[in-house]
Structure formats: C-alpha cells, structure tokens
C-alpha cells in the first residue's frame, strides 16, 4: 500500500483533460481540423464511435415495425383501375 502511494508521487505524467481532447481531435481528424474551435465533424464522431464501440460490452437493440403501432380501421374503398 505505502509503496504504491510513493510510486504515485513519482509519477511524472500528469493528465490534462484539455490536452487529451486536443489529441483526440488530431488523431480522429488526421490533423485536418487544425483550429480547435472547428472540433470534430459529424463523420469524425461516427468514426470515433465505430472505433471504440467494439471495446464496450453494449448490446445491439431490437428494432421492428410490426406491432410497434396500433392498426387503424381504414375505410373500405373500391379501387378504380
């Protein structure tokens, strides 16, 4: 326990959240987005998501139409061909 706490103090890397986001931007946009205010494009966010999602144990979701909505009673009409 104590040794680990000492190791922590000698840790020379400090995490900086803003630097990290900057690096995310550079990595994902391949350095194209140079000005920080431009941020990431829609496609970049999708690309980032696609890269990291496989590391999450998220479940795919069920998507269906039959039974998602109530039936209407449609007035009967004769087709005029």
């Amino acid at each position: 326990g104590k040794k680990k706490a000492q190791a922590l103090k000698t840790d020379f890397l400090r995490f900086n959240a803003a630097d990290f986001c900057d690096k995310v931007r550079i990595k994902v946009s391949n350095g194209i987005s140079k000005k920080e205010n431009y941020g990431l494009s829609h496609d970049d966010w999708v690309k980032l998501g696609r890269t990291i999602t496989p590391f999450f144990r998220s479940t795919p979701v069920l998507n269906f139409m039959c039974g998602a909505f109530q039936r209407d009673v449609v007035p009967k009409k004769k087709r005029t061909v």
């Binding site: 979701v61 069920l62 998507n63 269906f64 139409m65 039959c66 039974g67 998602a68 909505f69 109530q70 039936r71």
Partner: peptide
C-alpha cells in the same frame, strides 16, 4: 429478423416516436 405479433408489449417499442 421480423417481429411477428402485435401485442401490448410490442407497442412499448420506442425506436421511433408515436
């Protein structure tokens, strides 16, 4: 992959708004 029955539970689906 098809859902085959229209029930009170299937109508709780929320992928799209009412």
């Amino acid at each position: 992959l098809a859902n085959t029955a229209e029930t009170s539970i299937s109508r709780l689906s929320s992928t799209y708004s009412p």
